[in-house]
Amino acid sequence: MLRREFLRVRNRLPADDVRETGRVLAERALELPELARARTVAAYAAVGGEPDTRPLLDALRARGVRVLLPALLPDDDLDWGEYAGPDSLTPVRHGGKMALFEPSGARLGPDAVTAADAVLLPGLAVDARGMRLGRGGGSYDRVLARLERAGARPWLVVLLYDTEVVARVPAEAHDKPVHAVVTPSGARRFTGP
């Protein structure tokens, strides 16, 4: 029910607000030293009412950062490909789900994310503990488990609207906190995983 409410609010946002939020989020995110010095960033191409990630993807790429984007696999795990600019994205519809923008180039395998210095995680909300509420598909739970198994310790960041930072979200035993959330009004750090 909580997920549906966050999605309902997002789906009512005007496209101009979504784009402007993306522009501001890119500025705020690049102020973070951990993201500014990253050489490889695993990110995602926003869809629907998610804050627009393209300004950040393009700014990272312009700085010479290798940007990895996910491609959804049939079992809801994620493969990865390199972002080579807006023309390198292909809309892909998986079953009855909304079309996702995936990299059109070569696939690097699910383990490619373990090379990232920072991982931008999609989410619907984050709470005061740094716990993230995702869409419920489990794809990023698999990514976080893969990072842990590999001993990888990338910086974990969620990009959200200001109203999506809340007091508490439901969390399960396998859920891990993120290091930071970036909203239009600024960044907030947590103790993290």
Rank of each mutant, 00 (worst) to 15 (best):
L2V: 14
R4C: 02
E5L: 12
F6I: 11
L7H: 12
V9P: 00
L13T: 05
L13Y: 08
D16Q: 03
V18S: 11
V18H: 13
E20H: 12
T21H: 07
G22M: 13
R23G: 11
R23I: 07
A26C: 15
L30V: 07
E31I: 07
L32T: 04
L32C: 07
L35K: 04
L35I: 15
L35M: 10
A38F: 11
A38D: 06
V41Q: 03
A46H: 12
V47D: 08
V47E: 08
G48H: 09
G49V: 06
P51K: 02
L56Y: 03
A59G: 01
L60I: 13
R61I: 02
A62I: 14
A62W: 14
V65M: 09
V65Y: 01
V65F: 01
L68M: 06
D75L: 03
D77N: 14
D79P: 03
Y83F: 09
S88Q: 11
P91Q: 12
P91D: 07
V92N: 04
V92Y: 05
M98R: 15
M98V: 14
M98P: 00
S104I: 09
G105N: 06
R107N: 01
L108F: 02
L108M: 09
L108A: 07
D111H: 12
A112L: 12
A112S: 10
T114C: 13
T114I: 11
T114A: 10
T114E: 10
A115G: 10
A115R: 15
A118H: 04
V119K: 03
L120E: 06
L120S: 01
L121H: 00
P122E: 14
L124N: 10
A128K: 14
G130R: 06
G130F: 03
L133P: 00
G136A: 01
G136S: 02
G138C: 07
G138A: 05
G138E: 03
V143G: 08
L144T: 01
L144W: 03
A145S: 12
L147W: 04
E148V: 04
E148T: 07
E148P: 00
A152D: 03
V158W: 04
V158R: 04
L159N: 02
L159A: 04
E164Q: 15
V169M: 08
A171F: 14
E172T: 13
H174P: 00
D175T: 12
H179W: 07
T183L: 00
P184V: 06
G186P: 05
A187N: 00
R188T: 11
R189L: 15
F190Y: 10
T191Q: 11
P193D: 13
